[in-house]
Design a protein around this nucleic acid. Structure first.
Lengths: 213, 213, 213, 213
DNA sequence: GATGAATGAGCGTTCATTCAT
DNA sequence: GATGAATGAACGCTCATTCAT
């Protein structure tokens, strides 16, 4: 499962157990203080491991952030695939994806925030891996948009479609970056999310001038 | 000018000169290596100051990031005000603002990226200050949207208007966060920017189904 | 056989088997990286043992270097005794010893180097044991020199004889300490060895002004 | 003076003062415990510096051993040059060099021992530098031997001459490696040194069968 | 007001050793 | 008698901050 990061431990089940401890603990600490302000000791504590034991399962602090990224992005991808699978028509599938993205981003704001802020803390090779996963995610939206336009009999503009895929996957993240302000300025985040969904749907010409949520 | 950060120095002109040196130097270093990987020594060198002298104008490393934030966000706000001032009708003003936002974000990608990634390095009080400035910026968009809708004679939906203001000011930042991916997938960033602009305009019902750039 | 280092294991045959594994593995690792840069884990791996098993046969890392010293110096002594046994007259025996010493040192340069460099890593008591073995070796040369001088009918100068014994056994080691330099400056090590032999023979007045090798 | 090792300090006089403190302190610690068993903290203490201050003058623990090597070998070279300068004829100069080498090695046994044992602890580049210095030293002996043979009108055998240079510079070191044994077995080290000198002189055919010291 | 050497707490990491299974 | 995960003290090193000059 977590094969790409080398370990001194031989028992693969134990590796999974401990790595999950590490991921949970690290995520808590990283969210609270950011990668650079988190010490390995804190992470070990949060993971319920001793320093020495932690280092039996990773080789460096950077390995920790990498396995956290791996796990979180995998989990997000799987949630998304699950959400789509349950929908029927291309239109429903696209809408389901947009909703899923919104609710996931909302639900895991802290984690999402962490992902965006600390990507620079990954080493070169890890960044490549993570970007590849991100691209997968975007391409999923591309596919959904393509299917939708085909079904609608609309002409597909490649550039527009691909830019839209980027925008659609990212726009919900704005909620995360502006959350302090949004919470103060709006009664419920659900309303905000509806408005964002509308904005996105209009943006891709889904709806022509329907009014509201 | 830079009064909010305490200093040991009496001569106010000197304070401004030195603070600007610090800001320019620090920005260069921060963009290259991030806040945590930049040492105060490097910042001092980049600013053309000695360690001791630097500490005559700031009290801590965190002061540095704060004055950089202050300066950069002020500069962005001023550029925006300038851009709007030159436009005529509410519609032109809004469009000018959207374009200005896009081009500024594009031009100062590194700086924008730095602003977003390192906000966690600001202390509580600084964050409050910076968020207040950000809110000013958003409110500027709110005003432009309001004027535009009034002129158009459209009914103003408060929530939608305010969410849109958030989205419009932040969507261009997507370019920054996804730049590596976008550069690889698109021939020119100008095309991408046009598509983003279209997406935003549609999002706020500016255009009804025009097709293209 | 390896009784002096305490062990938890009862079966003496197994002790010998495992100790030999340890010695062979450790020697390989020590030669490659030196004592301090070798980890017990590496030694265990090289010996084909697990960490836990290794510690059933030694009590500490220092025990390992000690049993390696024991084994290597015993082996060198036995080779020397063998070489002498085969020679006839005192003169032949002395020359055989000098040649054997030279070729052994040449052949086992890495091991010899290790012995000299890492002696400081032995604990006080081990050093005493090892030095005693070394003295045996020197005394062997003393005996050979004494026999030779008696046969020659020469007056024996005790001090000179004993100092010579030290010099004769150690001069070949110069090859080891200066090997990089010697390799660069001379075509063949065989020539160098001949010259060293000549030098030693002259030093003990063996040869009076013969010229060459 | 100590230019080759980078430092954060600007005042060159201070660099020399502190580096000398470091060298003296480090040498004490290294001699007592060897390079690997010495901690940087111990070295800092022995040098009368704090950890942080020490690291203002060197960049790594390996830098410390390098500047120690530099200083010690320079000092040995200078002593040797001084000793030769004062002698007259080639014969006298050669003898002076041999004596100087013997007495220096005797006097600085601990330091010499350290030099020979810990050369492996130098990094690649430092080893090159140190070996170059060593070669200088050997070549000095080569030159003295050459002058001597020319003066004597003897035919010069290149290989023999060069091997002899190696042997002559190194043989005294045997005293250092065997010191515990020698001290026990001989009344005075002066006698031992005389015998070694004789051995060397005979080895290079200086003396033909004179008897004794 | 400028200088830059000094400080020391705290970081990431290693590894000899133990001991429950 | 073998296994290998757990341990934690100690290592080399960094760097924001201070302060005598």
């Amino acid at each position: 499962m977590h094969k790409s990061v080398k370990t001194r431990i031989k028992n693969p089940d134990l590796i999974d157990i401990r790595r999950n401890q590490i991921i949970q603990g690290a995520l808590k600490v990283f969210i609270a203080k950011g990668f650079h302000n988190s010490t390995v000791r804190e992470i070990a504590d949060a993971a319920g491991l001793t320093m020495g034991s932690l280092y039996n399962y990773i080789r460096s602090k950077e390995d920790i952030i990498f396995i956290v990224y791996e796990q979180v992005t995998r989990s997000l991808r799987e949630d998304m695939k699950q959400a789509i699978k349950e929908a029927g028509s291309p239109e429903e599938r696209l809408k389901a994806a947009l909703r899923q993205n919104l609710t996931t981003v909302h639900e895991y704001q802290d984690v999402i925030m962490f992902l965006y802020k600390e990507s620079a803390s990954l080493d070169k090779e890890s960044i490549r891996t993570v970007l590849a996963r991100e691209t997968e995610y975007i391409e999923l939206f591309e596919g959904l948009l393509r299917d939708y336009f085909i079904q609608k009999g609309k002409k597909i503009e490649e550039t527009r479609l691909r830019v839209s895929a980027d925008l659609l996957s990212y726009i919900p993240v704005i909620m995360t970056f502006r959350r302090w302000s949004l919470r103060r300025r709006f009664d419920s985040m659900e309303t905000v999310m509806e408005e964002i969904l509308n904005f996105m749907l209009k943006g891709i010409e889904f709806i022509e001038a329907e009014d509201g949520g």
